[in-house]
Amino acid sequence: MAAPMTRHLRPFGAACALAVLLAACVDVPDSVRAAFAPAAPGDPSNYRIGPHGTAPPADVGTAIIASATFDASSEAGPAVDAAVESIAPDAAVEPAADTDAAVTPASADGEGGAP
């Protein structure tokens, strides 16, 4: 868990590492964890990766947006190529559970509600 932060803050020294330790002490209630729960297979996620949005969630680990570690020599631009790093590169995306599902978006009317 601390791995990405360590990478993220490495250039900035001990004070930042202390901030990581601090983060371990905050209280996160269940209601907030529910708000941040990943999409379950039946959830109406509009961000579900896969064919037509029907694949199960790509809950393969975590990512962090990098800070001052961009590769300026990259062809497409430093931030573009180097800004996202997964800390679980060996994790696999589960196969689609239902590739025959409808291709309509999970939600499109702005009013909410499961399809």
Partner: peptide, 14 residues
């Protein structure tokens, strides 16, 4: 949309 939640895009670590 209103039925989406932050967890669909973000991960809250412990």
């Amino acid at each position: 949309t209103r039925d989406q939640r932050l967890g669909y895009m973000l991960i809250l670590q412990s």
